[in-house]
Nucleic acid binder design. Sequence first.
DNA 1: ATTTTAATGATAATGGTTTTCATTTTCATT
DNA 2: AATGAAAATGAAAACCATTATCATTAAAAT
Lengths: 156, 156
Amino acid sequence: MPWKDGTGPPWLHGKFKGCGYRMTMPRQIILDVLSGTTEHLSAEDIYHKVHSAYPSIGLTTVYRTLELLVHAGLIHKFDFGDGRARYELVEGSQNTGHHHHLVCTGCGGIIDYADFIDQEIELLKKTEKGLSKKYNFKITNHLIQFYGLCAKCQKQ
Amino acid sequence: MPWKDGTGPPWLHGKFKGCGYRMTMPRQIILDVLSGTTEHLSAEDIYHKVHSAYPSIGLTTVYRTLELLVHAGLIHKFDFGDGRARYELVEGSQNTGHHHHLVCTGCGGIIDYADFIDQEIELLKKTEKGLSKKYNFKITNHLIQFYGLCAKCQKQ
DNA sequence: ATTTTAATGATAATGGTTTTCATTTTCATT
DNA sequence: AATGAAAATGAAAACCATTATCATTAAAAT
Ligand SMILES: [Mn+2]
Ligand SMILES: [Mn+2]
Ligand SMILES: [Zn+2]
Ligand SMILES: [Zn+2]
């Protein structure tokens, strides 16, 4: 991580202030956790990781902060079908940018992929334009996920 | 509907028996409800609709039957982000076939669309093949959804 | 008709997420 | 630095869609 421990990435700090939010210790730690992983963590995952650096933090605050970050557009919230939401920084140090997901229905594992993204984006653009016109629907977002079995789970 | 009231579509009846399931009154009614709508009903929606024809049915049975139908591949289960699952017959009298969804984040409305489906399918096929090879991931299913605002919600 | 087995429904339990509310923290202003 | 208004926090309770339990009932096989 290119920023000091416990401070969170400075550009996120700036974004927070810019939105009128206060930058607090729990929020910094939560951003640190999200910035320091390539995984797709649940609220409770984050709560546990945060707990080691900041033991007094409550699960409620984790939920509230995540909601805030989603609303501010800094993180994405996903449902991969295992009954809990999972979160991912929109632009992280690890995460290279826009991507979609392969979801293993065997073990619940998630694989990021960005292959074919250019062609996907191209088709999405075309589709969005067509659908906007036909249904007068203003598209702001899309979700593409593939479900199946990962290499390991195929062998069982 | 091309079948008698309360009996459910006969081809579904056959499929049930074929899978070793018993065809019961609650299951018939639930299939009737699913066959007679183009909406994307939640378990509780279905429970309420079923209740008028079969007042003694329990919500538990609705959930169990839906799970069964999903497992048998007769219905699809969707999560549109409003905290409850929604269900749709795979091949209904109304429903023309494979399609994707526009989800209005304003009112929660769902629009079926099949435009560009051919191109989508083509890209999906190509993507699936590429991803299978690269990640050794066996794809069995996909999910594509667009989020945005419907015509009505744009005016507010 | 009898038996076997699956399906049902009332109820309670589960578990992720939200609400509530009293307390604490942040930050702009003295 | 001290003050105070407003926002944020955390413990606990509430929420709510979905599942598990279990005694009863219904469906198909005999
Ligand atoms: Mn990802
Ligand atoms: Mn549909
Ligand atoms: Zn797997
Ligand atoms: Zn709408």
